[in-house]
Design a protein around this nucleic acid. Sequence first.
DNA 1: TTCCAGACTA
DNA 2: TAGTCCGGAA
Length: 254
Amino acid sequence: CTAIATEEKKEKWEPENWQEVLDNIREMRKDRTAPVDTMGCEKCGDETAEPKVYRFHTLVSLMLSSQTKDTVTHAAMQKLRAQGLTVPKLLAMDPDTLGKLIYPVGFWKRKVEYLKKTAQILKDQYDEDIPNTVESLQSLPGVGPKMAHLCMDIAWGKLSGIGVDTHVHRISNRLKWVKKPTNNPEATRKGLEFWLSVDLWSEINWLLVGFGQEICTPVSPKCSQCLNKSLCPFGRSSLRSQKKSPGVPLNLDS
DNA sequence: TTCCAGACTA
DNA sequence: TAGTCCGGAA
C-alpha cells in the first residue's frame, strides 16, 4: 500500500502554483513584443507557396535559428526566399554563395554543410518534401530534438513533444517546473511533459521563449519587473541578494 | 565536453 | 575587454 501511495504521489507531481505562474507569464506576454512574436520560424515560411515548399521553409528557418536574435534568422530567410528557396535551388547554389546569404547567423559554416546535405537527402528520399516523423527529422544532419518537435508542430500541425530550447530549459529550471534540476534540454523536455497537459505543449514554447527574450534573460534577468518575482524561487533569491548588496545591482532594468 | 562564428553586454 | 550565449555533432 505504501509503495502504491508513493507511486501515485510520484505520478501526480506538479510544480507549486504553476497555474498562477503561467497566467502571469501570459499577462507579461500579452503585448507580443518579443522578437519571437514577429520573427519566429513559423513567420518565415511563404504561406502562398505550395505546402511542400512552405514546410521546407519552416525546416530551413529552424536550422538557421540563431542565438536569441530572431531578426538575424529572419533576414537570412528573406534573402534565401528572394533567391527562390526550394530543394533544387538550394542544391544548385554553391556553398560560398549560400554562406554569404546566411553569414550573420551563428555557426554559418556548419549550417551551410548541414543545409546542403539535408537538401540532398530530401531530394533523394522524400520527393523534395520534409519527413513527417520526429525520428526521421532527427536523422537529418543538423536537426536535433528541439528542431524536430517544433518542425512537427509548425510544418505538419502535429504535436509530438515540447520544443525545448535554451529559454525553455533555463526558465523551467528557474521556476522549478522540473521535479529535479536538469542539465540538458532533453531532460527538461521529459520533465515538463511529465506533468504539463498536452494542450499546453504548443503554447509553452512560444510563451517561454518570448518571456526569456524580454524578462527572464540568461544574464541579468529583470526579476524586479517580473510578475512572478514572489512566486519564483530564482526571483526570490536573486531579489534578496540584490537587497543585501545594493552597491552591486543584479538587475539593470532600463 | 568541446567546438563552432561571431554578437552582445557587464 | 572578458565572459556568455544558441543547438547539434563528435
